[in-house]
């Protein structure tokens, strides 16, 4: 449906997708230090040490972990911040 005033198209499917929570997935990589990953998670997400260590070990042992969920734009921003430390991260709609 088009808004004739603004020319903006509203797409219900896209809107629903944007409204869904999005996950930030952190992927294991074989060269980044565990201490670095813990530090970055604490710095970016303000997690306490125990939470950051638990998430880091999930990444290390399971190959990936959801480290944050929420609005798509914030998820993308967190993902970009993780990439700033060369950590492999992606976003996807929450399952």
């Amino acid at each position: 449906m088009a808004d004739t005033e603004t020319g903006v198209f509203s797409d219900t499917t896209t809107k629903q997708r944007l409204d869904l929570p999005w996950d930030v997935i952190l992927w294991n990589d074989p060269v980044s230090l565990i201490s670095l990953v813990v530090r970055v998670l604490r710095k970016l997400f303000s997690y306490d040490l125990a939470t950051a260590e638990r998430m880091t070990m999930s990444v290390h042992n399971d190959g990936k972990a959801v480290v944050w969920s929420g609005e798509r734009d914030k998820a993308a921003a967190y993902c970009v911040a993780l990439h700033g430390y060369a950590l492999s991260a992606t976003i996807q709609p929450s399952q």
């Binding site: 060269v31 980044s32 670095l36 700033g84 430390y85 060369a86």
Partner: peptide
């Protein structure tokens, strides 16, 4: 420096 060193490490890998 930490970011840059990580970028270098990932690039090297």
């Amino acid at each position: 420096w930490i970011r840059a060193l990580q970028l270098i490490l990932a690039a090297t890998a």
